[in-house]
Simulated assay, not measured.
Amino acid sequence: MLEAVSSHFATVSQTLCPVPADQRPINEYRDLQGSWFFGWSMWPLPRFQRRLALLWGMAGVVSGPLAIASMTSQAAPAKVAVAGVLGANLFVLLVVVRLILGWLYVGDRLQRPTVIYEETGWYDGQEWPKPEAELAQDRLIYTYELRPILQRLRVTLIILLLFSVSLIGLWGWL
């Protein structure tokens, strides 16, 4: 019974809502959830960390030889190693920044009381105020599902930045 009422209200909301389905914040959130790239952020922490470590290793396979090729033969081997590690770390840092930006965009759209959308192209932007029930639902999703993802990504970003700064300091010390 409750499912029938819920689906009825969802149908009414969808028929009254002029926003195209792919531009609705809840659908944008679901798209990111199902995305192979953005979905990593929702994985359990150990699995997420393994994925970042795998990315770091793959980037190291590229940045290591680049560091070797770009340094003179008189450069200290330690400096070459630090350059390779820093290059790999910067790649992972860029990936994390991209994850944060994607989730922040959807989070902003979930929290706003209005939905800005385009009917047919960039030149005919419209704004639709969300009904109270939809706004409350979107804000709950942001608070309990999206905010923890953003928190994890921010902590990861800070750790990567601190590691990069320490590598730069090590470079100067060598």
Results as ranks from 00 to 15, higher is better:
S6Y: 12
L146A: 13
K130G: 00
P25S: 08
S13V: 14
G57Q: 04
I168Y: 12
G60N: 10
L162W: 08
I159Y: 15
E132Q: 09
R30P: 02
L54V: 06
L32A: 01
S13Y: 03
V19G: 13
A59H: 09
R152Y: 04
Y105M: 12
V92E: 08
L150A: 11
L161R: 07
P148E: 13
P113A: 10
G172E: 04
F9G: 01
S63T: 08
L66H: 13
I159K: 09
S166L: 15
L160S: 11
K130R: 07
A78H: 05
F163I: 09
W36H: 15
A136C: 01
L2A: 09
E28F: 02
W122S: 13
G64F: 08
F163T: 13
V5W: 00
Y123D: 08
A136D: 00
P44N: 10
Y123S: 13
G34V: 03
P65V: 02
L55P: 03
L104H: 14
W36G: 13
I26Q: 09
L101C: 06
S41I: 00
L90C: 05
L162S: 11
W43Y: 08
L32V: 01
L161H: 12
D22G: 03
D108G: 13
R147E: 15
V12E: 05
K79G: 07
P77T: 05
G102S: 02
M58L: 06
T120D: 08
L135R: 05
G169F: 06
L66D: 15
R112P: 13
A53V: 03
I116E: 14
L94G: 15
E132P: 07
A133W: 04
S63F: 11
P44W: 06
I100P: 01
E3M: 00
A59L: 09
W56D: 06
Y142V: 11
S6K: 15
G102I: 10
L157I: 01
D138F: 01
W173I: 09
L110H: 03
L45V: 14
W173K: 03
